[in-house]
Design a protein around this nucleic acid. Structure first.
Lengths: 248, 248
DNA sequence: CGAGAGATTGATGGTACTCAAGGACGGTGG
DNA sequence: CCACCGTCCTTGAGTACCATCAATCTCTCG
């Protein structure tokens, strides 16, 4: 289920940092990040990275792969709160508030950068800019959730699907996980439906409508956007310009 | 619409800090907070405190009163993202990311503590603990949103209403704005409905069901919880223990 | 007393859910 | 190689939930 890789990459050489989506850190900050890093971890699809209510000693940044944050009601109904892509920080709530109120599960084989939770404080104490970056990351997550909440609360199924597709594509594209209007979909319709707050049955029907209108095509674990302008119109989607974001 | 009060209270004497819900700050931190504070502002009900897309030079903490965060689709549909109570920080996204993607509007006459946005950086630089507190606040907001998202995505109207009532009551109670199972409701059913993602018509019917089952009573701008256990059962609500939180 | 905003109720229709069955794979084992 | 299986997706039929439209009702306020 889980295994440590033998040779963790130093943060200075982290391939993610090359990407234009991320802000450059100073040499000194990078060196500090590396002392904060405890190793790497690779988990298989379906593995639980962080479990609600439990107190993992770690927090993580995704280096490769997809995961998702989710939360359940006792009777089994599940909401996918968000998807997590390379560069996303996992477990900030845990590190800051000593409590997780949601679970994080891997969708693909996922490579994670492992940090020690109990050293988070020293990040703030020694490198204010990195502490600021943590707040930045938390604020951005809040923004994404705001957008989702608007979607789930106000849009109908067709609009929601269109919105989520565009949203995911843009986020994935920013970190090099999508391009040419093709988005890998390492999840089934069940995950997608739970993210949208609709049933798989209704999602299937809704996707058929989008397919028939030749707006998207979803097969072979890959979703292709055929008519982006029309999708944007349906979803009332506004692309958020990709300002550079910090990478912890 | 807005007016400055003549004599702002120094942070050291802030009446909110007395409340058990909040963590105590050191004398030094309080003194610093006071240099960060720029004044106080009182706004009338309905006043826009922060507007989406615009770049206010300030961020705020609510000292007294209620506000709400909301976000719209172009066609007018509106989602109330969350309510804001005394002690809540408003405009963190703006301060950190230089951009607001939602609007904040006062529900009651609201007294605000005004901070300079461009000095946020110095908070991190000079008092790491306060920077940490900012991340704490952002993480908590994320937690609240997670809960709402689960509610809107998975619960039906009756469950949602029960959940939101309990959620608001507990938050208000923690800061002394509610007690004896009575919650002031400085908002109309339209706001409540937009928070729940249902129409006012359906909310009205749903409230009638709750009234007929003698679970709640809502009149005269005050909502009374008559049968909390049953409401908790319907909502599958779990009270989050009120750990002390930082107050900026 | 009339005006207007907010809340309630009724009637009707559409959206999305449930239940259920059938199809399309991909893996496994005979 | 193909039957067998499980999982996931698709489709159909019937129903429940919630939205829409529209009319009343209750307040407050001028």
């Amino acid at each position: 289920m889980q295994r440590r890789t033998p040779a963790p990459i130093p943060c200075e050489n982290c391939p993610l940092r090359e990407k234009p989506a991320f802000r450059q850190l100073s040499r000194e900050e990078l060196a500090f990040m590396h002392t904060f890093k405890r190793g790497e971890l690779v988990v298989d699809p379906g593995a639980t990275i962080l479990l609600e209510e439990s107190a993992s000693p770690h927090l993580y940044t995704i280096l490769e792969g997809w995961a998702f944050r989710h939360k359940q009601i006792e009777d089994g109904r599940r909401q996918v709160l968000n998807f997590a892509l390379p560069g996303d920080l996992i477990g900030l709530q845990l590190a800051i508030m000593n409590e997780m109120q949601h679970t994080v599960t891997a969708l693909t084989r996922t490579r994670l950068c492992v940090f020690q939770r109990d050293k988070v404080w020293s990040v703030f104490a020694k490198h204010a800019a990195l502490g600021f970056a943590m707040t930045w990351i938390a604020s951005r997550e809040e923004q994404l959730l705001d957008g989702h909440l608007l979607s789930i609360g106000q849009r109908n199924a067709l609009e929601r699907v269109a919105y989520l597709i565009l949203h995911l594509y843009d986020r994935a594209e920013a970190v090099g996980c999508a391009g040419n209007d093709a988005l890998p979909t390492p999840f089934g319709q069940a995950h997608f439906a739970d993210a949208l707050g609709i049933t798989t049955v209704h999602l299937s029907r809704t996707l058929r409508r989008l397919r028939e209108r030749e707006l998207v095509r979803w097969r072979d674990d890959s979703l292709v956007i055929l008519d982006r302008p029309e999708l944007e119109r349906i979803a009332a989607y506004e692309r958020v310009e990709g300002i550079q974001r910090p990478l912890i």
